[in-house]
Write a protein that binds this DNA or RNA. Structure first.
Length: 484
DNA sequence: CTTTGCGGGCCAC
DNA sequence: GTGGCCCGCAAAG
């Protein structure tokens, strides 16, 4: 099966996925049949994108996503619909000992997720908090999968407005690591036990008082790290990583069971000014795959050997916000403030001055209304109703996500082309205004007026939005290889 | 136990 | 009708 490979991007017009080059919508009665190629699997799709995967692509078959997507019943057995669950963070937005941030993958199962949210931050004992996804006009980003012939059609609607959780493989790797550690600790305990037993026969000092369970090992749902600076560096999807430069750090200290390794301070990063909504924008100076060690390095041999084409994919998010900077609506189901105060010995309550543990768990901080600005108005909903069905193939959102240094110089050169294209109405089927409204609404935190240079970059982003659907991950590998 | 997919059902628009 | 979401069920790992 042919995959989209570098050569298809050789000419400067080849800017998007194969799926975006064709005109189709997931709801179309007839999808494109004469497919000449397939897209390579995208783990971190973001934005209004479409891909066409090979029916033999394992990841596509499993409807995988880096985001935590849950099945949503759309009463259409032809189309599998999934909606994003967001990300679980520490409600205090505490900084981990190594400067990272907690970003867990929400459990997909409702029950498991509820259990997960009852847990406390391993670092500061604050409650965990689920940041719901509102990237699709106030609703969660949705992914659609449809098998048609030998192809798997994928369409995503919405722009994730939250940090990335750890990827599925990371979560799984961590779980298996915890399991292994547990079993090995049990083994070592048994061994100690035996030794102690032996010792008791050899001397009188053999007691078990020094045998304790390994602390901080109360479950696999622990730490997903992002680097300080409020930019989630979604850790590398293990199977994509073929180097293991940080192995010596693993399991050394503190949260070893959660595979929190010591992050190198990423001095090679530049930071943007805070946006009015308190979002940081991160411009990776360069993407060194080695800068983002996995939380836990699973032996490669034990990982599924899928036909992945992405290697060394440094992943960062663009818009990272701490939970206190987000507005939270009345979705009380997402919150666990009770736990904050229920936790005995919780010292620093003054930190919660702005967090009202009200009975309904409803929390809205007027200080950070940006998210609410995106609440879907009836008018907007109408727009969505009309736009979700049309013209995604031509979607060229107006920007404001900042994605620099993602493509090489040619990217910048293409900006002119794009600008011309837009002004010349090259995308006649694009409902610009509607889509822009939707996107502006969805982006919310990105609504600041970009400077000219920012616009340039932003235009690049959106022109390459599909290419960079790994969420501003600075994912140049595909396209730089392709001479993007 | 968790994930995943399916499907019934409810509600809002 | 469409879309979001809740729930339960079952299969699979």
């Amino acid at each position: 099966m042919s995959k989209v490979s570098g050569d298809m991007y050789d000419d400067s017009d080849c800017i998007c996925s194969y799926g975006m080059k064709l005109t189709w919508d997931i709801n179309d009665p007839k999808l494109p049949q004469d497919l000449k190629q397939f897209d390579s699997f995208q783990e971190w799709t973001d934005g209004y994108v479409r891909y066409i995967y090979s029916g033999e692509d394992k990841n596509a078959q499993r409807h995988l996503s880096g985001w935590a997507m849950r099945n949503t019943n759309n009463h259409n057995c032809q189309i599998l619909k999934k909606s994003c669950l967001g990300v679980v963070v520490c409600s205090r937005n505490c900084t981990l000992p190594d400067g990272g941030k907690l970003q867990l993958r929400p459990a997909i199962c409702d029950k498991a997720r509820q259990k997960q949210q009852k847990k406390l931050c391993n670092n500061c004992n604050a409650a965990l908090e689920l940041i719901p996804c509102r990237g699709h006009s106030g609703y969660p980003v949705t992914n659609f999968w449809r098998l048609d012939g030998k192809a798997i059609f994928f369409q995503a609607k919405g722009v994730h407005d939250h940090p990335r959780p750890e990827s599925k493989s990371e979560t799984e790797a961590r779980r298996s690591a915890v399991k292994r550690q547990l079993s090995s600790s049990h083994l070592s305990q048994k061994k100690k036990l035996l030794e102690s037993e032996v010792g008791r026969y050899n001397d009188s000092g053999g007691h078990f008082s020094n045998i304790h369970p390994i602390p901080c090992l109360d479950g696999p749902e622990r730490f997903s790290l992002v680097s300080e600076g409020s930019f989630p560096i979604a850790p590398q999807h293990y199977p994509f990583q073929n180097t293991d430069p940080f192995k010596p750090n693993y399991g050394t200290v503190g949260y070893q069971s959660e595979s929190v390794s010591t992050f190198p301070k990423c001095s090679d990063r530049m930071y943007m000014q805070r946006t009015p909504c308190g979002y940081d924008f991160h411009v990776p100076g360069y993407m060194n795959p080695n800068s983002y060690p996995p939380l836990y390095k699973e032996p490669m041999g034990s990982l599924p050997d899928c036909d992945r084409v992405q290697l060394n994919t440094p992943q960062t998010n663009l818009g990272m916000l701490n939970p206190h900077e987000r507005g939270f609506d009345g979705a009380g189901k997402h919150h666990g403030w009770k736990q904050i105060f229920a936790k005995p010995g919780y010292a620093d309550r003054s930190d919660y001055g702005q967090i009202q543990p009200n009975a309904g768990h409803s929390y809205y901080n007027p200080e950070y209304p940006c998210r609410y600005a995106r609440s879907p108005s009836p008018a907007l909903q109408t727009v969505i109703t009309t736009t979700t069905k049309v013209s995604y193939q031509a979607y060229k959102p107006p920007v404001v996500k900042y994605a620099d240094n993602v493509c090489d110089v040619k990217t910048l050169q293409n900006y002119t082309h794009l600008q011309d294209s837009l002004s010349e109405g090259v995308f006649p089927d694009m409902k610009a205004q509607d889509d822009f409204s939707v996107i502006k609404s969805a982006l919310g935190y990105q609504e600041q007026i970009p400077t000219k240079s920012e616009r340039l970059d932003n235009m690049d982003f959106y022109k390459y939005g599909q290419c960079m659907s790994n969420g501003f991950s600075g994912q140049p590998y595909r396209y730089e290889n392709a001479d993007c």
